[in-house]
Nucleic acid binder design. Structure first.
Lengths: 194, 194
DNA sequence: TTCTAAATATGATGCAGATCATAAAGTACT
DNA sequence: AGTACTTTATGATCTGCATCATATTTAGAA
């Protein structure tokens, strides 16, 4: 489902500014959100205020379907990372798209499968692996998405929030991985070399 | 998609015995597995041999689709918990079912959404919450699936393998939750009271 | 009923990573 | 170039849970 098609169909585009909250835990889902432009993060926040990044979504992607589809309140916050333009598709319209847009249901199935894969991987890491191993795993996962020679645009804090670790632990861990040459760094940034 | 329909269509039923491995990490997916009878567990195993239960599947459910759909090698083991009868549906046949069986693709979408929900919940727990909180969360999750008055049929070891904790920690934690009356126990078993 | 294995129990000790504190680099903006 | 803010850095201490060891209880099989 390309965003343009939705716009052609007459769906309205809504602007969200950085740090705006699209929805929060406990809210009853009403829409599926298609990102025309920008970036959001889906996070759960513990009682002590610690964030865990469940996912990051960018232009061309959509989010919020699972809760809507199984009709359960959200369990995460979704927060705008960068000013964004988002199309809110209502439940009925979304079901309509699934029924009528050829290939759309298959695309959703694949998208959900990918996310499930990521979460299974992270669960194994959080359940069984030590800080260093966890770090290496997400770093490699993230590196697979950038071109050879390019650097990762994530802060240590973000790595911490994706792995359930603390910044200090991530900083020490990244240094360790770098000294062991398990990752490559250029001017403090993690880069993909091959 | 009811199993009987698959049998009517001529798909063969295969018998697996307890402890048999249906597939293991690294294998290239070829089938989706529909359980006619029995029970399997999907687990990842760390280098040190510690199991993490990614999911448990019973009669009427299917498993193995995500890896097949996104065409990536499995990352978990799937192991037979109780002697089972399983229908292996090839990739092509599975795509055929999605295309032709009305409502099947929607059912897959909902199934995947549910699993995603569970994994998001567990990720938050493993990333941010302490043993006691984690335990209470899965216990309540599991209790929601049994009738009022009935007991949970899981061992402390299984709770440990679902939460990334150790048996000893689970044993101590369950006692603690029980003494705080956050869970109810009858003769050593956790029971649902309301 | 007896034997055996699995599950539960409980204390003692160790350690990875959290937490706390404080500082030095970067980076962006004026 | 200077100010303010974010990110990275680094040492010291604390702590929850793992780990190890060793019972005791329960359940299942013969």
């Amino acid at each position: 489902m390309e965003i343009q098609k939705l716009i052609d169909k007459g769906f309205a585009v809504k602007t969200f500014h950085k740090d705006a909250i699209v929805y929060e835990p406990g809210m009853q889902p009403r829409y599926v959100y298609f990102i025309k432009l920008g970036e959001v993060r889906m996070v759960t926040i513990s009682d002590e205020g610690k964030e865990f990044i469940q996912g990051v979504f960018k232009a061309g992607q959509y989010f919020g379907e699972p809760a809507l589809l199984i009709d359960r309140p959200y369990l995460a916050f979704t927060i705008i990372n960068k000013d964004s333009q988002i199309i809110q598709v209502s439940k009925n319209d979304f079901f309509g798209l699934i029924e009528n847009e050829p290939g759309f249901s298959m695309s959703i199935i694949k998208t959900l499968s990918k996310r499930l894969f990521y979460k299974s991987m992270m669960l194994e890491e959080l359940a069984n692996e030590k800080a260093e191993h966890r770090l290496l795993t997400i770093i490699n996962y993230l590196l697979a998405e950038v071109k050879v020679g390019e650097q990762l645009k994530v802060t240590r804090q973000e790595l911490a929030d994706m792995t359930g670790l603390r910044v200090e632990t991530v900083i020490r861990g990244v240094k360790l991985l770098s000294s062991k040459e398990e990752i490559s760094m250029v001017r403090g940034k993690i880069v993909r070399v091959k």
